[in-house]
Design a binder for these strands. Structure first.
Length: 877
RNA sequence: GGGCGCUUAGCUCAGUUGGUAGAGCGCUACCCUUACAAGGUAGAUGUCGCAAGUUCGACCCUUGCAGCGCCCACCA
């Protein structure tokens, strides 16, 4: 093996990447027993657009842990999935191909998607295709992205087994996702019912609690006067005046003296003259607004909660498109004391968007005094502008509304205790992240809504029989047989029916909805292991060892995975969960595509090399957010270069030795024993850290020790190793250098797989072809080497050498300048330590042997550095 | 309003069970020295967020406060 003169990272990294792939270095071996296998539930990245440095950061961290486990002799199951299911892909496929999905259309076998050239196609121009065709288009589009992602991951050196790939929209995932649904139904965990549900009016779909986020939005309190039946009035304050027509009651706190006399009476709403009860309710806050408020169906979660217990009929006025629906006063539940006026007023609002309706109703209220006996108008004063948090679907543009619709749910509220118990069986890294999971579980207040009124995704394997009048019977759904999965109920036919009965009275209809993407993502361990489809393999891989993921999706991904694992098999999905931090931009804002502050990784890999970029990721601790800082890449590059040079030096020294190759048995000199002791300490620390998934501390330990070794031990021993006349002493130095190199290379291998593999390959005595299958350094391998009699030899020699260098630096002279006299004053133990390495010290410091003087100083402490007096030869220049 | 985390050198961050504050970057000076000039050697820099308490002794433990970040709840 020839050693290159300069380290060209790009060339060498490409070479090793290809080599590993050709040799199958990272392949999983199915026949190795479970206890010798380490399994990873890799997060499938969303395949829409490109990866950014945040991905590189967290995936590298997982790779570090995996590589350590591999070197511990574990068979590694490290798959890669692609999340190409869900809204981001749906949007993207629509834009790229100018198509949209209509599940009611039949599948067209010969249809192929064509990318739209030029300008973005308008929504209205989109060609409608069947769900199956849409999925095919998705697979074509995401296939290209997946190749690009894979190439990046390979370049980064992720030690994934690339034969273990899955995509969340592929047949296997849809099959398992549908099977999971059927299993949940069978076990009584999943149910469908019609109820108010959070709804996004733009996507026109139900959304789940976990997909919500708060946004600060401008709003306004509107003070509206209500009449009391039998005389009198009161004023409520609301930010949603447009929901006045949906008012079903007025409530105040039971102890609120101001309104006590009103309880039991009825209020008459302005404009619509609806008679609504005035009732006490605990959730009314006397301090807030006017202390008395209207309950509408539905303005917010409290309205829904209160309505459920009230037994009052709901008045739904917001349609699925976010516009006020048409309705007729006089028809229950829209009763009115004055239906004609109510209809006339509502007619002004009907068909308007929520925003438009709000503006309109303010005008109407300002002009209306009919309900309050000519005592002014219903609207009091000007609306008071405020900023307040409003709930949004995280991908949505307008606030969520509560709409009564039929949806599928998974019971979660009933099982909080069990889910908390499952969470406690898992090791969280860092430990405090468990609290986030527990808070989320404790705070759950709605069952998990898993149906979405979208087209693209995993469909429910369900049909509904149609009655004699063509009415669907939702209470006796027809479930697909497990063997037939995956099915698309919009094109497949349930057993016992024929296609021509679709939509016909006495026939059936398919469930048009698709599942929440988390319902599929919740199964990533089972998808990778082959649950249901390959029970033997599943049993050999599951539960898994490690789930790496980001901390912001504990409430979604971690939660649903734990949930489904418990519901399906009564177990935890993995024994460890490692939470990575975020990458922050230099202004300490989270780097994310939607913020437009992302840094893409390709140019970084080119500029700083894969090892350099990996080094940056390896320095950040789990759970800790890290500011993007290109200085750290440079430190990594510097370390790589140092490893290259140190390796080159040691390997060339070894090759210059004639005769028997050196071995550990040759290590005998006190200074060398001290260096081996240093290695032992470093191995112990790095191993302990890695066992706790703390790769960053492990790297730090290796790095600190490595630089120290290069700066001091290597300099001290250089002359002896190079041309030592005492052959035994020289062999001792060479053997120590060799062991040091082999230990450091392996300690660095998880973080810096390329440079370590390169240097490892130069070494003629390497027993393992790839360093990545070499055994992780163990204390036992150095057992044969004696412990030094004194533990401060390296320290004392380094102190003196450092002082000599300092004096030369102060004198602004070269480090090769001869020291004619060196007086060392120190405690006796240090002096004797120095004497045991005297010859090395003399050579490294360019000290004249006859000029050495030692003096014992009883006043000094053991921990004090020696006092050193240096006399330099006259500079010749 | 509740919870979690953070606050240490100009910057990015370490600091193991309480015992005299650390690294790298940056900055300054010097050095071609036979592994390394894509380098090396050395130097300067801190009221450890604030306040009280426990202790012989506190960056570390306790309490309170402040600031930052995140999560959750509230949303009339």
């Amino acid at each position: 093996m020839t050693i290159p003169k300069k380290y060209k990272a790009g060339e060498i990294e490409t070479r090793w990447q290809d080599h590993w792939s050709e040799r199958g270095v990272y392949d999983w071996k199915p026949d190795v027993p479970r206890e010798n296998t380490f399994t990873v539930d890799t997060p499938p990245p969303t395949v829409s657009g490109s990866l950014h440095v945040g991905h590189v950061f967290s995936y590298t961290q997982t790779d570090l842990i995996v590589r350590y486990q591999r070197m511990q002799g574990k068979n590694i199951f490290y798959p890669m999935g692609w999340d190409d299911n869900g809204l981001p892909t749906e949007r993207r496929v629509q834009n790229v191909y100018g198509i949209s999905c209509n599940p009611r259309l039949p599948y067209e076998k010969d249809w192929k998607p064509e990318p739209q050239s030029g300008k973005k196609s308008k929504k209205s121009d989109a060609v409608e295709v069947s769900r199956k065709n849409f999925i095919e288009a998705c697979e074509i589009l995401t296939g290209d992205d997946e190749k690009a992602f894979e190439a990046l991951w390979r370049r980064l050196g992720l030690s994934v087994d690339w034969s273990l790939q899955y995509a969340t929209i592929d047949d296997h995932c849809r099959k398992l996702s549908q099977y999971s649904f059927l299993d949940l139904v069978e076990k009584g965990f999943a149910y469908s019912h019609e109820a108010p549900t959070m709804w996004d009016i733009d996507f026109r779909t139900a959304v789940a609690q976990a997909e919500l986020e708060d946004r600060e939005m401008p709003g306004a309190y509107h003070d509206i006067k209500f009449a009391v039946e039998g005389g009198g009035d009161f004023t409520i304050s609301t930010t949603r005046p447009e929901l006045l027509a949906a008012c079903i009651a007025v409530v105040a706190h039971p102890d609120d003296k101001r309104f006590k006399d009103l309880f039991g009476k009825h209020a008459i709403t302005p404009l619509f003259h609806a008679k609504v009860p005035i009732l006490p309710a605990e959730h009314a806050d006397p301090e807030k607004g006017t202390g008395i408020l209207m309950v509408c169906t539905f303005g917010d979660v409290m309205d829904v909660e209160w309505w459920k217990s009230s037994k009052l009929p709901a008045k739904q006025i917001i349609g699925r498109d976010g516009r006020l629906i048409e309705l007729d006063y006089g028809t229950a539940p829209f009763t009115s004391e004055n239906p004609e006026l109510a209809n006339s007023n509502y007619g002004e609002l009907s068909g308007l968007t929520i925003k438009q309706a709000q503006k309109k109703i303010v005008e109407l209220l300002a002009a209306d005094g009919s309900a309050v006996d000519g005592n002014g108008t219903a609207l009091l004063g000007e609306p008071k502008q405020i900023m307040h948090p409003v709930k949004f679907f995280e991908k949505g543009d307008r606030p969520v509304e509560f709409l009564t619709t039929r949806q599928w749910f998974v019971k979660v509220c009933d099982y909080k205790e069990e889910l908390l118990a499952q969470g406690r069986k898992i090791s969280w890294h860092p430990e405090y992240m468990r609290a986030r999971y527990e808070h989320w579980v404790e705070g759950l207040n709605t069952d998990w809504c898993i149906s979405r009124q979208r087209f693209f995704g995993v469909s429910f394997p369900v049909w509904y029989p149609l009655g004699e009048n063509g009415e669907p019977n939702y209470d006796s759904p027809i479930y697909a047989k497990a063997e037939s999965l995956p099915v698309d109920p919009m094109s497949d036919v349930p057993e016992g029916y024929t296609e021509d009965q679709r939509g016909q009275a006495g026939g059936f209809i398919g469930d048009p909805d698709v599942m929440d993407t988390w319902a599929t993502s919740a199964l990533t361990p089972q998808i990778a292991s082959g649950w249901y489809t390959n029970s033997e393999r599943h049993a050999g891989l599951y539960p898994m060892d490690l789930r790496p993921q980001a901390h912001d999706i504990i409430r979604t991904w971690a939660f649903v995975t734990i949930l489904k694992s418990w519901m399906h098999e009564g177990t935890i999905p993995w024994s460890h969960i490692a939470l990575s931090g975020w990458i922050l931009d230099p202004d300490r804002k989270k780097m994310s595509k939607s913020k437009g502050n992302v840094v893409t990784p390709d140019h970084l890999l080119t500029e700083y090399s894969s090892d350099g970029v990996r080094y940056w990721a390896a320095r950040a601790r789990l759970g800790t957010d890290t500011a993007f800082d290109d200085k750290v890449f440079k430190i990594g590059q510097k370390l790589v270069l140092k490893i290259f040079n140190m390796g080159k030096f040691v390997v060339s020294l070894l090759s210059q030795l004639e005769g028997e190759p050196v071995s550990k048995a040759d290590i005998s000199e006190p200074l060398d024993l001290a260096q081996i002791e240093e290695l032992r300490a470093t191995i112990a620390k790095a191993t302990k850290s890695f066992e706790a998934f703390d790769y960053a501390t492990a790297l730090q330990a290796a790095e600190d020790s490595f630089w120290k070794t290069c700066d001091f031990y290597l300099e001290l021993v250089k002359t002896r190793a190079y041309k030592g006349e005492d052959l035994a002493a020289r062999r001792s130095a060479l053997a120590t250098l060799k062991e040091s190199l082999l230990v450091y290379l392996r300690l660095f291998a998880p973080a810096l797989p390329f440079i370590t593999e390169e240097v490892w390959s130069w070494h003629p005595h390497s027993t393992c072809e790839s360093i990545h299958h070499a055994p992780w350094p163990k204390l036992e391998e150095l057992q044969i080497v004696a412990t030094p009699e004194q533990d401060n030899i390296l320290l004392a020699a380094s102190e003196v050498l450092s002082e000599v260098r300092k004096q030369k630096s102060v004198a602004q002279t070269s480090l090769t300048t001869e020291v004619t006299q060196l007086k060392v004053k120190g405690v006796s133990s240090k002096l004797s330590a120095l004497k045991s390495a005297l010859s090395d010290l003399i050579h490294a410091g360019h000290i004249t042997e006859s000029g050495m003087e030692f003096e014992e100083d009883g006043d000094l402490q053991e921990s004090d550095p020696c006092e050193v007096q240096v006399t330099l030869a006259e500079s010749s220049s």
